[in-house]
Write a protein that binds this DNA or RNA. Structure first.
Length: 294
DNA sequence: TAAGCGTGGAA
DNA sequence: TTTCCAAGCTT
């Protein structure tokens, strides 16, 4: 097949590479439901594949449909989320399931615009679900795709902090016209970024498009943009919130203030984090001085 | 727009 | 040991 937008063979070669080298991930099984794909996309937001795999399997076993999840308290979703991180995603996935049940007759919607209205679904996730679960033609622009295209076409090691207009236009320009081919390209170029064109120590020797790569042609110039914001963790509210929520997740009864005080020394920070967890809906106050999952 | 939001494995 | 970072979303 000739792809009009791809005279140099970028897309066809990446797709051919994908056909041979793709990882065998369960949410890529053609039998995986749109809901199963959606759950994987939520869990994979900022969390590595290896840690998602077991939790995803248990989740789908317990809640094979949006209706099944929506029928349970949101706190059960937070508990099942375990230590994947960013537990508000669990809350949003539960809220999205509830919305799918209420508005979409229990079926995960297939269009970008409908998906985008769901809680926890932004530009990337809406495009990804539409493309991967329904085979639609979408510009799927995640951190992997941005890095690959930024290198191959832009000649730069890393993309900007946020998606630029130029990046989006570049991604649209290489998206195959044919719908199923476009969907395959989207997953293929993401996979290339995930396993070959990685952020650090890219495996250029294994890349199917090294000869097309502008970054390589330029001699692999180092990133020279503004410093990328590092993530400190020790002593942050994130860590404090994580400690507190872990107590509630592992307990099946309300957790008393005394136990919370035992896991974080600073009273001021502890109280602030407790209040923010309640504000976010990750905890509810039960009686006097006790907290539980919603 | 930039900051906030978890967690743990690998380099 | 420290640093980096892994399929983002929300406000």
């Amino acid at each position: 097949m000739t792809i009009r937008t791809d005279p140099a063979g970028l897309t066809s070669r990446v797709i051919a590479w994908y056909d041979e080298h793709q990882r065998d991930l369960p949410w890529r099984d053609p039998a995986a439901s749109p809901w199963a794909v959606m759950v994987s996309e939520f869990m994979l937001q900022q969390t590595p594949v290896a840690r998602v795999l077991p939790v995803w399997a248990q989740w789908l076993d317990r809640w094979p449909t949006p209706a099944a999840l929506a029928a349970e308290p949101a706190g059960e979703a937070v508990r099942a989320w375990g230590r994947l991180g960013y537990p508000r995603r669990a809350l949003r996935l539960h809220a999205a399931a509830t919305e799918i049940e209420r508005v979409h007759d229990g079926e995960v919607p297939s269009t970008y615009d409908e998906l985008l209205t769901l809680p926890g679904v932004g530009d990337y996730t809406a495009a990804a679900i539409s493309a991967f679960a329904f085979g639609r033609r979408q510009v799927v622009l995640d951190t992997n795709v941005r890095r690959v295209l930024g290198r191959v076409r832009g000649g730069e090691e890393f993309p900007a902090a946020s998606v630029t207009r130029a990046e989006r236009e570049r991604a649209a320009a290489v998206l195959p016209d044919d719908e199923p081919t476009a969907a395959t390209w989207s997953v293929a170029v993401m996979e290339l970024g995930a396993v070959v064109c990685t952020a650090s120590s890219p495996r250029c020797a294994d890349c199917p498009v090294t000869d097309l790569c502008a970054w390589r042609a330029a001699g692999y110039p180092a990133y020279d943009g503004p410093p990328r914001r590092g993530q400190t963790y020790d002593g942050t509210d994130r860590q404090c919130r994580g400690r507190i929520l872990a107590l509630a997740r592992d307990a099946h009864e309300p957790v008393h203030r005394s136990r919370i005080e035992a896991v974080w020394p600073s009273a001021e920070q502890r109280d602030r984090c407790l209040a923010s967890l309640v504000h976010d809906g990750l905890l509810v106050r039960v009686g006097t001085g006790a907290y539980a999952l919603p």
